[in-house]
């Protein structure tokens, strides 16, 4: 028996990841449930406004093409918020104590949660991307498409980190659940997912520029459809920065969580 002196205990991170994946695979109804809302957006907004001339969207880009990256980003946001909820659910059922009393650092626990939550959110958003193809979505730049995975991963890490930071401020899952439901839609609307940000009042545009999802959605458009508003370097830089900041903040706040 050795006690790791390193701040990160890889086996502990792996244990938490395996647990999240096992639970994810075992609860297909939850996976399907999480896909329903984004699917509704795709079907009703994407096909409904298909062919409509929306101000700010470049000509020749169908609305469905425009909206798919946004809805994929939304799916990820939705999936990632469950990672924060999972920490509180663990507290509700007492399992958090089992994790906190183990000889692994808090940073390892946060990283394990980020790994598990990101993986499941990533799978969900990829499923939405696949489902959008029969609806008429076309990947225009197949060579760049693998980069979409990187974008999704960075986004997932960012929002799981955000979820953990937020969850560590709550003692029960109910209050957190209400707040998350309240927070998800503004993040979605302020990301340029449904329409370009420059259609909004200037002040609101600035808010959108602080939203990591803005860069994620834009980067997805860049690599999948080819109509990004910002240079890809800016998008990826902002995403990487967001991911690092959120994980560090999440770990710092989780450090103070008491078991009781």
């Amino acid at each position: 028996m050795t006690v790791s002196r390193l701040p990160v205990d890889l086996q502990g991170v792996y244990a938490l990841w395996v647990r999240d994946i096992t639970r994810f695979v075992r609860a297909p109804s939850q996976v399907v449930g999480a896909l329903l809302t984004p699917l509704l957006f795709l079907v009703f907004l994407g096909t409904g406004f298909s062919g409509a001339a929306i101000p700010g969207i470049p000509e020749g880009v169908d609305y469905l093409q425009y909206i798919v990256p946004g809805v994929v980003g939304f799916t990820l946001l939705f999936g990632a918020s469950f990672a924060g909820l999972a920490i509180l659910a663990d507290r509700d059922v007492g399992f958090l104590k089992e994790i906190l009393v183990a000889p692994v650092s808090r940073t390892s626990i946060v990283l394990g949660r980020v790994a598990g939550g990101s993986t499941t959110a990533l799978v969900q958003s990829l499923l939405i991307l696949l489902l959008s193809i029969p609806l008429g979505f076309r990947v225009r730049r197949p060579l760049l498409a693998p980069l979409a995975l990187v974008v999704l991963l960075l986004l997932a890490v960012t929002f799981v980190g955000f979820g953990i930071a937020l969850a560590s401020q709550f003692r029960d899952s109910q209050g957190f659940g209400i707040l998350v439901q309240f927070a998800i839609l503004p993040l979605f609307f302020l990301s340029g997912a449904l329409y370009p940000l420059d259609q909004l009042p200037t002040v609101v545009q600035y808010l959108g520029l602080l939203n990591p999802l803005t860069y994620g959605v834009d980067a997805l458009r860049g690599v999948l459809v080819g109509n990004a508003a910002y240079p890809l370097v800016v998008d990826f830089g902002a995403l990487a920065l967001g991911a690092v900041v959120m994980v560090v903040v999440g770990a710092a706040l989780f450090e103070r969580v008491e078991a009781g």
């Binding site: 086996q11 244990a15 096992t22 183990a102």
Partner: peptide, 18 residues
Amino acid sequence: DEELTGVENLVFHARLYG
């Protein structure tokens, strides 16, 4: 973790304890 099996709970623990 009631959604995991008995063995899975133990394996999780074993990994956390290195």
